[in-house]
Design a binder for these strands. Structure first.
Lengths: 178, 178, 178, 178
DNA sequence: TATGAATGAGCGTTCATTCAT
DNA sequence: AATGAATGAACGCTCATTCAT
């Protein structure tokens, strides 16, 4: 049912009606209300669900061989995904949610990725979680809002990733000479 | 009245009702409809108005002494602004609008800023308009959606700007240079 | 101005807006309200005006050489007219109006036509004003409501007129006679 | 609910609001919209319902002993009814509807009555369906519009019916004879 | 005096939410 | 427990009417 709701919200946006969702889920509207007291609650549940999956994916990458590659791959995947999932966007946007109990610790999972990538020297050490989440949210938001195609996504993320990488000798060693 | 509408839309988002807008504007709903045939038209008018101001600001900066500084200042201003203006976001998102006559040529204005900054060596030559607009849209969207405070904005834009700057010797010339 | 209102109401029916009427009349809406306190009042005025013209026409025919022909011609003219004038219909329908002072005595005018036609033996003596007006109203209403073409109007009025004529020997004397 | 809608439309005419109808029906507006997608659809449903009843009644009379009496009785019944039912009027007016499937064949039913009455010599052979429907529509329209009382209805229909009957010897045989 | 901008009640319609079945 | 018919507040929009100019 969450699945169906996610599909419908992804397709029709936030204005999708409960009836539509119920229809796609193959249940009566009343059945949805048995589990979620309001439309807002259903929506929140979807967001939380989304976050869980995001956290899971981050967990999987936590032990990848190349932390830098893992980090950038993760970032890219999320943005890629948000092109088609209208709801995900808010998963990252709604940072406040994670205070609630039971919410998967997506921030923790992402932070692990970040720290490892920083320790590997793939990400500048002075980048904090806050701005990282901000960048993720920003690119997701824009990707779905403006319907980025693959080329645009690649080029735009390219700029962001460059901004995240350490600059100078480290990155372009030979270039800077001495 | 446009002003009031902008305020309300900024506060309540696109779902703000015409009654609400009328109330804030201190007029009857009919008065709004006298000037804008539909809610959509009102919305478009706000966007266009916003674009005009954006284009004007870009024009002012077009002949600034330091093109790089001008460019980054402009970028920052816009994002700063969008924290409070929910609508601006779509001004950039809706690139298609500029085909219509009478619409201020915001893209042209921004492009001028970009080109000058690139010629001055402050921005990488391989950055195109498309990804620049994407980055602008993304940061605006996120800034208003997530209510960035000044610190977060500075740090996040810092990353993006670093990604836009030429890297290596070019960027830190004095440092690496002879 | 009454003229303009009549034209518009004839074209668009009772739902025509005051703005539309004012526009066609070439005045502001306020000017109409100066003369007629409400839309209803304007409408009533049109009806009364219409009645006056009807009464005038009846007056002209009052002294025609052939009373029977005059009567049927008058009936036909009115019905014919109502095909195109949505408002006329109510002139006849609203019998109650004629109590008011200043209303043209259309009933009197029509009655004169009827009486003369009856005296000439062209209309049955037992036909009263009430049913005559009812028939007029009925055919006008239907003519405009259903958009009678000329053929249908002729055939339908033919039946009604036959019903109004004296029957038996009087009408088809030669036929039934020896 | 159809009943309630019919009552309200009969009372207030086509401008009756959905709220009013809902109130009289004792339901919420939404309930009406559940069954009829638009006001227009509700209206059509009433008309069709009305037509069905009309057709049924005509069917019942189709085999009456006295075709002439049956015909005139039917005509009278309909007009009588329309005094109180503002909507019926359009059932007859909207002849075009009967093309749609599922619409009761009221025209066919009436035609059967007419033909039988003509074969019985009670109605003139040269009266066609078109003018018969025109007369029906006209008298219904006027009966409800002007609120005919029984006396007026009788006298007015008397004229129309005389117009429909064969004239001369046939009708008043004994009289003209001698 | 004439104007038309402004008003806001009211309309048709939608949809989150409730509750009898 | 599950359903979906019923509800009615709220929406976008229109237009008769008012009144400052």
């Amino acid at each position: 049912m969450l699945e169906a709701a996610e599909v419908v919200l992804a397709r029709d946006g936030l204005d999708a009606s409960m009836r539509e969702i119920a229809e796609v889920a193959g249940v009566g509207v009343g059945t949805i209300y048995r589990q979620f007291p309001t439309k807002e609650a259903l929506y929140q549940a979807i967001v939380v669900d989304r976050m869980r999956r995001l956290a899971d994916r981050a967990g999987e990458l936590a032990s990848a061989a190349d932390p830098g590659a893992a980090f950038f791959a993760y970032f890219t995947t999320i943005v890629e995904d948000s092109t088609v999932k209208k709801v995900l966007v808010d998963a990252l946007a709604t940072a406040g949610i994670d205070a609630k109990a039971g919410t998967p610790d997506i921030k923790g999972a992402i932070e692990a990725l970040l720290v490892r990538a920083q320790e590997a020297g793939a990400i500048r050490a002075d980048v904090g979680m806050e701005e990282l989440l901000a960048l993720l949210s920003a690119t997701c938001l824009a990707a779905q809002h403006n319907n980025w195609d693959e080329g645009l996504r690649t080029r735009t993320l390219g700029v962001v990733f460059d901004g995240l990488r350490p600059s100078g000798p480290v990155r372009r060693t030979g270039a800077s000479g001495a």
